[in-house]
């Protein structure tokens, strides 16, 4: 079985309060000058984070995409041209050549933290 490489988290950075993020949807945060898309799967009680830039045309738009799942695996569709990406490993599900960087997320004391290498 393929195992996912977990990058070592050097630092957890506080992004924003839980209520700043929409339920069952995404929003962008700015962390150390980097745009990161954070997704709140409220129904499932899970969070995901990826780069905000879509690798297809370079638009900063992934956070505005529609979230959902494909056979139980969480995904997001870029609003520009509807390429979909796995939120588990960032792989593009509709076009192999594209890949999103993913980040670990944790929630503590009502705040969302993003893990940076």
């Amino acid at each position: 079985m393929e195992t996912q490489t977990i990058t070592e988290v050097k630092e957890w950075i506080k992004a924003a309060a839980v209520e700043d993020f929409p339920e069952n949807g995404g929003a962008a945060v700015l962390i150390n000058g980097e745009q990161i898309a954070v997704f709140n799967f409220t129904n499932e009680g899970r969070w995901y984070a990826t780069q905000n830039q879509c690798p297809h045309k370079g638009e900063m738009a992934i956070s505005r995409g529609l979230t959902g799942d494909s056979e139980g695996h969480p995904k997001v569709a870029c609003p520009f041209h509807k390429r979909t990406f796995s939120l588990e490993d960032g792989k593009c599900l509709t076009d192999e050549q594209y890949q999103l960087k993913t980040y670990p997320v944790k929630v503590e004391n009502g705040f969302v933290f993003i893990g940076i290498e």
């Binding site: 069952n24 129904n43 959902g68 799942d69 969480p74």
Partner: peptide, 19 residues
Amino acid sequence: FNDLLATYGKGSGCELCKP
């Protein structure tokens, strides 16, 4: 949407059924 999903659907939805 949440009510519809809970009553008649499954999973988290997607970019087709949500809009």
